[in-house]
Structure formats: C-alpha cells, structure tokens
Design a binder for these strands. Sequence first.
DNA 1: GTTGAAATTGATAAGCTGTCTCAAGATAGT
DNA 2: ACTATCTTGAGACAGCTTATCAATTTCAAC
Lengths: 153, 153
Amino acid sequence: MGVFHAGTHAMSKTLKEMDVLRQHLAKHQLKLTRQRELILTAFLRQEHVTAETMYHQLAKKDPHLGLATIYRTLNLFCEAGIAQARHFGTQTQYDNISHKGHHDHLICTGCGTIVEFENCEIERLQEEVATKNGFVIQTHRLELYGLCARCRH
Amino acid sequence: MGVFHAGTHAMSKTLKEMDVLRQHLAKHQLKLTRQRELILTAFLRQEHVTAETMYHQLAKKDPHLGLATIYRTLNLFCEAGIAQARHFGTQTQYDNISHKGHHDHLICTGCGTIVEFENCEIERLQEEVATKNGFVIQTHRLELYGLCARCRH
DNA sequence: GTTGAAATTGATAAGCTGTCTCAAGATAGT
DNA sequence: ACTATCTTGAGACAGCTTATCAATTTCAAC
C-alpha cells in the first residue's frame, strides 16, 4: 500500500474529519479500521442519523457489519468531536457537527419531524449572554419542541 | 361520602390542573379514578419526575399502585397538556408544565460549572422562527458550551 | 341505591434500544 | 513477518416503556 503525503489535492471533503478521527485514535491508542472509515464516510454525507438507519444503509456495502459496531463507532465519533448524540423519542440521533450553521432544530413532538434552521440574531444574543457571564462559547445546542402545522390538525 | 360542590374556596392550587384533567377525561370518555387523582396531586408538587421516582414516592401512600399505571397516567397528563415528556439519557423525564421556569444553561466544558440564565429576546426570536415554520412551541432546550473565565486562565 | 356497559387497574410478559461478552480476526509498531 | 493489542460480529443481556388480560372500579341510567 503506497503512502502518500496528505493535504495536497484531490482528497475529498472528508479529509478534515478523517484527520480529526486519526488524531483522536492516535491519542487514545486506537486503530483505524476498514469499518471506521466506511462508517465515517457514510456518516459525513448526512446531517443526522440513527444507528439503525446506518445499519440498513451500510448493509449493502458490507452485509456483515454489525449493529454493535455502528453504535460503538458513532459513540467514538462523539468522543472525537465529529458527532453529537441527541435523544429524541425512544431513539438516539447522531448529528453531524461539521454541518455548522444548521445546528439548531425545530422538533415536532407529534410526528418527530425535524426542521433545521439558523438564526444569526439568536447566535449573536447567545454570544452576548456568554460574554456577560465571562464565558467563551465553543458550541451550543438549541432545540425547540412543539407541534407542526399538520399535527395541530 | 359527602359530596360537596367544588369551586368555592379552600381548594388547593391543584384545582386548575384537576379541572384541565377532568375536561380532558370527559372529552375522551375516560374516567376519573383514585389513582389518577393521587398521581396528579403528587406530580404537581414537583418540577420534573421520572415514572420510577413517582413509583417509589407513591409506594408509601398506595403500595399496590403499579408502575404501568404511573406510566399510563403520566402519558395521559401529556395528552391533557399538564405534563411534557423529555428524554434525557435513557430515561424519560416528565416536566410539570405549570412550572414554566426558564431552563437555559451555560455549561463550562472545563470545570463543569453550570450557569442558568434567561433571555427574553432569545425567547422572542425562537417564537418567530417557530411561527415562520408553522410550529407552536411547547418547550425548548438551549445549552451553550464553552469555557468560563477561570478555565481560560 | 342498584345495575351494567365500558374504562381502568395491577402483575407480568413482551418489546425496543443500546451495551456487554468473548472468541476470532485485523492492525500497526518493531 | 511477528506479536501484542485492539476491533469485530453475533448474540446475550440490561434498562426503560408498553401491551396483555382477568379482576375491579367508575359513572350514567334507571
């Protein structure tokens, strides 16, 4: 297997996250496996997924990929700062953190529909609140729960 | 058992919610039972509970009250608009909607300190976003993660 | 107050997510 | 290539919530 120096060109946009993962693995004496690469590539294509949906998606590419591996890997991504877990209903959604600016969610408690939004004004006010309290924000989570038009009948 | 006409005086502050429940029951051909009254009274005393905690709390008053009944009743409260379910970790928290406190948090990723805050302007913008998307907000969660003054050195 | 159809309860079985176990296999430093 | 170590896959397992069903309670109509 040839080893090319990364960071030149022709690398997909997954490069950044792949490097983040590689660094996290190195720091914790973990290994880069075929499964972890496969799952990361598929994960980065989406805004948010459940372990179950990834399991079905990836069954085509690797029928022997186990559900436990998906869970383990998605949790690994959370520790590496690539993903963020969010509990909705009875399931856990894993959000792709790199999709910044579409970080906020409007969630229907009736049907589970998730609408993504961004609002600069809210972000600005968040900064204001943080500064006022001596904080510097690294990330945030804003979820609005309510009923969508259809679920209100 | 004497039957007194309600709604005069000396009723606790649970009156309002009890009426909400009564109306909901009437509208859906459900019945007001001893258990439902008991659970509502205990529920209203608290900000948020899990089914399990209520089960233990109420075991003293009614050792035969079943866990399934607690779950059924708390879900009933949600349908009646008295409670709201929120999934945290692996458990479901049932929030007392009448305790509409502002639950926004500023969390230090360094030392874990949690600062609570409220900001009317943010709330207003949240409503705006929701309305624009056809939603009616029931509740929300806003968490800002960052470093507090001390942890930045 | 009795009566009776319909709803509710309690105990437990079953279901659903997510984690743990462990033998077999893959990875990476030497 | 060798070997210590990590990872995987399959299923067992655990925690939380819902479904089942016979026995009981409610409540509206007598």
